[in-house]
Design a protein around this nucleic acid. Structure first.
Ligand code: MN
Ligand code: MN
Ligand code: MN
Ligand code: MN
Lengths: 222, 222
DNA sequence: TTTATTTTTTAGTCTAATCTAAAAATATTT
DNA sequence: AAATATTTTTAGATTAGACTAAAAAATAAA
């Protein structure tokens, strides 16, 4: 059961993470093109890299049939996600970064290779279960605590909810939310839903606000 | 005066740092071989890299005449040292790392590219002036506070001193110091110096200890 | 001041990670 | 079921950073 240690490069880690994120949407096999789009690279580069990852037994790969993570690859991917999200918590909680500023720095920090560092950081942050965008943080064994949440676009008119996460965590979207005074924990009541374009009228902190379907389908509530 | 931003790679940063550290010993020009030894690489690789750094105006380079940092290169090098040392402080002060465990992780963390991150970290740590090995931390403008200290090997017999730093910060040496209960701030009195091999007899925390010349010439005192 | 030694540079090769262009396989329409 | 379109893979090229071996320059010794 003692697994041999396989070195994974910075670039390989990025591929693993992207395959992991795409896996939930297409569990039987992730497409080359989908990976290429997500990584902002070309399909031919993806094919090359997939072969390398298959060689290292991080993914299962059949030509033309898409790619999926092995148990080993899944754990590696979860550890990168764990690091990314823990660093995001650190940046917000300890260094006073705002939630729209942390992603790019975390993209770099997630590649620092030290298990001790990340476990000590976890403890220093008091073992947070979620990152600043409401995404769950895997523990050191890769276990993820499932929380139930739904998209605001699926909410019931008349009910009260609390904002618990964002689907899109681009700084553009987050800055829009800042402007609208929407943050994690913000309570909101759904007043109306326009049948024509699904625009919502929502009461937030005493104010009535109009939120487009695009916005509503990127906000998680509970 | 607005300098154009020049991207410096991970590898280039390591070279700049090494050239910086070697510059104090040979201010007129650092040798190719010295860099190669420090970087654990070959002289031919160093020549290639020096050309690239000269292209980017980070170093001055004349064939066969050694290399020196430009103003720009000096500032870049100091910023890497700043990051390295601030991260070391973070690891020791906040994450409970021991001083012999921080160097390798800091070698990775020093390459994270975010001025905001490093200045926020500096503030979070209360603007420390020294790292866990007693080395000064450059401020955000690259200014370094000079402290006067001397090597234990140059100490006067009969006098009292305090340990203020290490010249060699390898974990092997630091672990030796741990074993001898020598840390930054430890007081010591020089009892005797053997003329034959310069071995010292030193009183530390009530105990008499024998320190070889090699040890003494890697410990800074004040 | 020649000769020998050491240092540094050049020339050519290698690998990782990318790209473009073209071929092959798969999927979608008629 | 053919024809067409899309996706994926291959082939070949490029760049950064490293290497070895050999040539050139600088330094030290005789
Ligand atoms: Mn993120
Ligand atoms: Mn996040
Ligand atoms: Mn260090
Ligand atoms: Mn240090």
């Amino acid at each position: 059961m003692t697994e041999k240690y396989i070195f994974v490069t910075h670039s390989e880690e990025n591929y693993l993470k992207v395959i992991y994120h795409l896996s939930s949407a297409s569990p039987k096999g992730v497409n080359t093109n989908a990976i290429a789009a997500m990584m902002d690279t070309k399909a031919s580069s993806v094919t090359d890299m997939i072969k390398k990852l298959a060689e290292k037994e991080m993914v299962l790969y059949q030509k033309y049939q898409g790619v999926s993570l092995t148990e080993q690859g899944l754990l590696a991917a979860k550890m990168i996600v764990r690091k990314h999200r823990l660093w995001e918590v650190f940046l917000v909680e300890k260094l006073d970064f705002s939630w729209d500023e942390v992603h790019d720095v975390a993209e770099e920090l997630e590649h620092i290779k030290s298990e001790k560092l990340i476990n000590k950081l976890d403890a220093f942050l008091n073992f947070p279960s979620e990152d600043p965008h409401g995404d769950p943080i895997p523990n050191q064994y890769g276990e993820i605590q499932k929380t139930d949440k739904q998209l605001l676009s699926e909410a019931t008119v008349g009910k009260n909810y609390i904002c618990v996460g964002v689907k899109d965590s681009s700084s553009a979207f987050l800055q829009y939310l800042n402007k609208q005074k929407i943050a994690l924990g913000t309570p909101m009541k759904i007043l109306e839903k326009e049948t024509f374009d699904q625009t919502l009228l929502v009461e937030i902190e005493g104010e009535d606000k109009v939120l487009s379907h695009k916005i509503a389908s990127n906000l998680y509530i509970n």
